[in-house]
Amino acid sequence: MKKISVVTPLFNEQSNVVELCQRVAEVMKSMPYDYEHLCIDNCSSDDTVSILRNIAASDPHVKVIVNARNFGYIRSSFHALLQADGDAVVLIASDLQDPPEMIREFVQKWEEGFKTVMAVKPVSEESKIMFRLRKFYYKIVTRISEVPLVQNATGSGLFDRAVLNVLRSIQDPYPYFRGLVCEVGFPIATVPFKQPRRVRGVSSQNFYSLYDMAMLGITKHSKVPLRLMTISGFLLAFVSLLIAFGYLMAKLLFWNAFVLGTAPVLIGIFFFGALQMMFLGLLGEYIGAIQTQVRNLPLVVEAERINF
């Protein structure tokens, strides 16, 4: 019998964890597979861990990893995926916005031969502004990326053991997972759905975490911003040289009548200063990604394992 591992990262999800485990169990018991439900808790400050202990005590399919501290959603999720030992691994969110019932569709696509299946949300009940910003971001990243990325992917999906073996060999300490599975190269099936609003609890994703994930997607999978910086630098240097030459000729031809004003100087200083700061900031993002890579830290440090 084939085995499917369901992986769920959690952080302060005490209001959702019971329903989550119940719905995952109902879905998996309705299919002819052995399964495990691996929950990784990112050092929650509420009762999530104690609730998971009670669930694991009565259900041997539920396994729990408790992190020593909050290592962030990206690292925690990726670590849990690499600990799963099923023939296929399903990643599903804990907030129930990606319904666990989609697992059936993931598995169906897997049985059709796809090694990677990803959930995509062409429509969503979230804030229209946020949804449009996400859509715009995915279009930008897809356009500049070295490999085509799946637009509007939520992160949930199914990944065959062959995909996980490749990801395990990469040893990336801070991966952009949605891009990484596209880099592997296997054909990707998508499961579209309308994403509902979060019913209970508060999302742990804030502006910083969303920005972090956005910049990770750009710096990990595209060199286009670096090339644009280089090309822009040459173009601006050429324009600056032309302007300087123009002012020199004007002064030589109209020595007494032409007065060099302060306005062009101030405009030039502020414009090029702002441009340099923007380029330095973008360059810093790439340097930060390199620094994370060379430190070679573990994805997470585990404090405890339950039901392993």
Score class of each variant (00 low, 15 high):
Val17Pro: 03
Arg197Tyr: 09
Gln151Phe: 07
Asp160Phe: 02
Phe279Tyr: 13
Glu112Ser: 10
Ile92Glu: 04
Arg295Lys: 15
Arg23Glu: 15
Ala88Trp: 06
Tyr211Gly: 11
Lys115Cys: 09
Leu226Asn: 06
Asn256His: 13
Phe106Thr: 00
Phe71Ala: 04
Val120Ser: 03
Phe245Arg: 09
Lys3Asp: 03
Gly288Asp: 11
Val107Ala: 12
Gly113Arg: 07
Gly72Asn: 00
Asn165Leu: 00
Ala244Asp: 07
Tyr35Ser: 14
Thr219Gln: 00
Phe245Cys: 09
Ile290Tyr: 13
Ala263Val: 15
Thr48Ile: 09
Val301Asn: 12
Asp95Thr: 05
Asn67Glu: 15
Pro175Met: 02
Asn54Trp: 05
Ile231Gly: 00
Ile290Lys: 09
Ser15Leu: 12
Ser222Thr: 02
Ile290Gly: 05
Ser169Asp: 12
Gly268Lys: 04
Lys139Cys: 08
Arg23Asn: 14
His79Lys: 02
Ile55Thr: 08
Ser156Phe: 05
Ala257Pro: 00
His221Asp: 01
Ser222His: 01
Leu299Cys: 01
Leu299Arg: 03
Tyr211Val: 12
Lys3Phe: 01
Arg178Leu: 05
Pro173Trp: 07
Val123Phe: 13
Ile40Asp: 05
Pro32Ala: 14
Gly113Phe: 05
Arg69Phe: 08
Ser30Cys: 09
Asp87Val: 02
Val265Asp: 10
Phe308Lys: 03
Val147Thr: 13
Leu82Trp: 06
Gly217Pro: 09
His37Gln: 05
Arg197Ala: 12
Tyr138Ile: 04
Glu304Gly: 10
Glu126Lys: 08
Leu91Ser: 07
Phe272Ile: 10
Ser44Glu: 02
Ile267Tyr: 13
Ser232Met: 14
Asp87Thr: 03
Phe193Lys: 05
Thr154Asp: 11
Ser145Trp: 03
Ser127Thr: 11
Gln171Arg: 15
Ser15Phe: 06
Asp85Gln: 08
Gly113Asp: 01
Leu91Arg: 09
Pro148Arg: 02
Lys29Thr: 14
Ser156Gly: 13
Pro298Ser: 01
Ile51His: 10
Gln205Val: 02
Tyr208Lys: 05
Ala257Asn: 13
Lys139Arg: 15
Thr190Pro: 09
Phe78Met: 05
Leu280Glu: 13
Leu210Ile: 15
Asn152Gly: 02
Asn307Leu: 07
Asn307Phe: 03
Phe159Ala: 01
Asn42His: 01
Phe11Tyr: 15
Glu112Trp: 10
Val239Ile: 15
Ile218Lys: 00
Pro175Cys: 06
Phe271Trp: 14
Val181His: 00
Arg295Ala: 11
Arg53Trp: 08
Tyr174Met: 11
Asp95Ser: 02
Ile144Asn: 04
Val17Glu: 01
Leu252Arg: 14
Glu183Lys: 14
Arg198Phe: 08
Leu282Cys: 11
Met31Gln: 13
Pro60Gly: 04
Val49Ile: 13
Leu275Val: 11
Gln195His: 11
Leu180Phe: 00
Gln171Gly: 07
Ile129Lys: 13
His37Asn: 02
Gly157Arg: 02
Asn152Phe: 12
Gly284Glu: 07
Pro99Gly: 11
Asp87Lys: 01
Phe238Asn: 08
Ser209Thr: 07
Val202Ser: 10
Val49Asp: 08
Leu38Ser: 04
Gly233Asp: 11
Ser240Leu: 13
Gly284Ala: 06
Val163Leu: 00
Arg161Leu: 08
Ser124Thr: 15
Val64Lys: 00
Lys194Asn: 14
Phe271Tyr: 14
Gly155Leu: 02
Ala244Arg: 07
Val49Pro: 06
Val24Asn: 10
Leu242Met: 12
Glu183Cys: 11
Thr116Glu: 00
Glu111Phe: 07
